[in-house]
Design a protein around this nucleic acid. Sequence first.
DNA 1: TGAGATTATAGATAAGTATCTATACAGACA
DNA 2: TGTCTGTATAGATACTTATCTATAATCTCA
Lengths: 112, 112
Amino acid sequence: MVTRIPLQLLDCLPKAGTEPLARTTAETMATALKAVADPTRLQILAMIAASENQESCVCNLTEPLDLTQPTISHHLKKLAEAGLISGERRGTWVWYSLNRERWIQIANLFNA
Amino acid sequence: MVTRIPLQLLDCLPKAGTEPLARTTAETMATALKAVADPTRLQILAMIAASENQESCVCNLTEPLDLTQPTISHHLKKLAEAGLISGERRGTWVWYSLNRERWIQIANLFNA
DNA sequence: TGAGATTATAGATAAGTATCTATACAGACA
DNA sequence: TGTCTGTATAGATACTTATCTATAATCTCA
């Protein structure tokens, strides 16, 4: 099972006159950003988004990305931990879909 | 001297029906995101932004962050390579300031 | 020019992580 | 139940990187 990283940091980025960014807050933010700061994971996100119904099983990702199945699973786990995707088992396959609210949440880190 | 990472990727993030995200594009994006996916660098950005005139010399960053001067210089170099800050020598000190256009550019990666 | 102060670089080290192979787990179905 | 397929986990390895100490480079000023 995957544990999500909590995030309540919408008001903490570079702005004049604010108080210093607390270390723990900075670390939480960095953890979220690290999840998307990887080329393979960006490709996975893009592939899921471009798929029909905006979901994809692991098997559809492995071949185009030219990586082994365990490596893809590793990246999917990272993305799930960051709350960016969710997996749902339907029969033999596990279907991953985007959590767009979470994507927007991370995007907002830049707008504060 | 610092070399900037080129970036022309405003139209490449998760959206249904788009074509696959090219590896080279994904790598360029990931490089930009990695620059901000670090707690110390987020704190540095916040400190510069909160400083008077929104600039800071290295000496003002070292003590509050409880890191050695070379470590701070290392992170400043990473941020400069990503185009997020610029350093200007004025006398003995080097003053770093934010490149807000670049910050917005990276933020836009999430809005495409 | 020489001394002192600030910043950058070089080199070493430890921690993190992306990848692989091997294997376990879970569901479908005969 | 047993076998096959799809996915997850364990463990190993190589690469990256954040940090340190030591030192070089740059500027000021006496």
